[in-house]
Design a protein around this nucleic acid. Structure first.
Lengths: 334, 334
DNA sequence: GAATAGTGTGAAAAAGTTTTCAATTGTAAA
DNA sequence: TTTACAATTGAAAACTTTTTCACACTATTC
């Protein structure tokens, strides 16, 4: 039976048990083909017998790689972030990387510290998620001497690894689909705070509207329920758009609830298309048509890309764009 | 200016820059009071000048502690898990611990591997979240030679550190509050799969019902929307309970939606109290009365407790029970 | 039978810290 | 002055691996 208890058995113990040098033990662990099968078996047996598990820290020090990646996110409680983390973690496990979780809470000082910490921790790579990306963040990424993959954000720079959908195209298409129904008074509901990705969404919307000779109309509210719900109540009392695109499911649900409160029928009097396709979209009444952002896949692909970068594998294109599609539900007509 | 680039400057470089031995540099980092202020300043200045950051791995090897804790969870995308993680991470940061995230996906083999991995990683402590706790998991916890805090589950064992609310009491009280309104036909909606904590919730409900000489009535469904929604539609066509307690917000939302579909008025014909008080409770229509499980705090307190255990601080009681309360909204009458 | 080319293995160095122990210096009391 | 003791410092060991280098074999070729 293996010794379940985590007693400190080292490579020396294994070596003397198997009557070989510690170098040989190390080799059976790392380059098994380099040691004679008979010896290898003896060592493996000793490892089993003693329940030896190599000390990952000593290993990291000696090999100068930690097989650890840092996952830097603004906040884990957002549904989309959490799902992305699942994707990252699943692939990391597959490739035997340990993941360190760092949460910035969107505070710049904390973020600054975190970058220092992950370097001190000798991580081999970084997965970076930041809704509110700014110029200095880009600089930070570029100056890292360990590979970084930017997640769920597309940047127009071929030297930066990033994976996301094409936000602009997604909103362009969604807007078009409403225009094609003959709707004209189409609103875009965005956020007040400067989410980097929302600017892409806005651009797609504006382009589609302008192409159809329609006047773009953007309102901005908060992501917080306590502020956006009253906002919508007030807004919908005074405005009657035919349709709305909304940058986030949770905000769209507030809008639906407000419309119902004000007596506006959805989808008959107001059609809504939202973005992200979280569980909220299925749980709201009416259910919410939403652009599906494959966030689990984005996490998974980001991590896979990072493994390639860490192993210096050749990569055709650092800017990965994943496909999106719209899930039609009951907040839009047929 | 500090050298932002993460070039490899070691303790030796600092030592020679400040013209002291590396032991002294190490001391100013770890026991600053032990070195003469003048020397300390010189060393600090050298550290600043060179942009030195101690290598966390070497540090871990030499000190035999990693200042790293493992956070083992079944799945991060559940709203309650994600919020708990926020609590853990915030406190971990405060006490300068790095957190390694491990996701079991509720697969026993994966979980087995993960325990081995975290021991190999030399973590100083473990935060463990498991909805489906079983006997062998308890064994695993007890045999760990590194402290473990069990999170969001109460166990009846004074040797195991755990933090949660009193589920049984919470459901007992919630049931009583419905009984006190004169309601008699009170349903408990639980899950089919054997979530360990749900057995406590059921016990609280059953006790309150029996004390009032009412017949307990438990139905079990799935956590998955695609199965529980049709289930409720069917159930509510054939049964008209006066009230229901539901073990999870998302399930309660399904029930509300099904009730509306079937034409049952909430709260007039059916009162619902749910559990967890996630964002769902505020977003559903009608809004959902829910037992508030302070899950962020549970994460935070767990991590704080773990720091005490890791430092061998004396602890009065390993079983921490946090207070809960019911948030009344519109799925119940006044 | 000698030269050649692998294989397989061990000794020792290296990774970058912390920690122990001993040596030195400084300071206050005798 | 000593003496005694605390404060400060440095040398060296320790932590547990990986990796380099050299050596001893074995097998192959001429």
């Amino acid at each position: 039976m293996v010794d379940i208890k985590n007693t400190k058995v080292t490579i020396y113990d294994v070596a003397s048990e198997a009557d070989v040098s510690l170098a040989t033990v190390s080799r059976v662990l790392n380059y098994p083909e380099k040691v004679k099968p008979a010896t290898r078996e003896r060592v493996l047996e000793a490892i089993r017998k003693l329940g030896y598990r190599p000390n990952a820290i000593a290993r990291g020090l000696a090999s100068r790689k930690s097989t650890t990646v840092a996952l830097i996110v603004p906040d884990v409680s957002r549904a989309s972030v959490a799902e992305m983390i699942n994707g990252v973690v699943d692939i990391a496990r597959k490739y035997d990387y340990t993941v360190i979780l760092k949460v910035t809470n969107s505070e710049p000082d904390v973020e600054e510290d975190i970058w220092q910490e992950v370097f001190a921790a000798q991580v081999d790579g970084i997965i970076y998620l930041n809704d509110e990306l700014q110029e200095h963040n880009i600089k930070q990424i570029k100056s890292s001497d360990v590979p970084v993959v930017l997640c769920n954000v597309g940047v127009d720079d071929p030297t930066i690894a990033c994976v996301s959908i094409d936000f602009e195209k997604a909103f362009y298409e969604a807007t078009q689909s409403l225009i094609n129904k003959g709707l004209k008074d189409i609103l875009l509901v965005s956020t007040r705070s400067a989410y980097y990705v929302n600017s892409f969404k806005e651009r797609g919307y504006i382009n589609a509207m302008k192409e159809a000779n329609l006047e773009p109309n953007i309102v901005r509210t908060s992501g917080r329920l306590v502020v956006n719900y009253p906002f919508f109540i007030d807004y919908l009392k005074n405005h009657k758009p035919e349709a709305a695109l909304v940058v986030r499911d949770s905000i769209a649900v507030s809008m639906i609830n407000a419309a119902s409160e004000v007596g506006i029928k959805i989808p008959d009097e107001l059609e809504i298309i939202s973005f992200q396709n979280t569980k909220y979209a299925k749980m709201s009444r009416p259910t919410l048509s939403s652009i599906d952002n494959p966030i689990y896949d984005i996490g998974a692909v980001s991590m896979r890309l990072l493994t390639k970068l860490m192993n210096n594998e050749p990569i055709e294109n650092l800017n990965v764009v994943l496909p999106h599609n719209i899930i039609w539900r009951n907040s839009t007509k047929n």
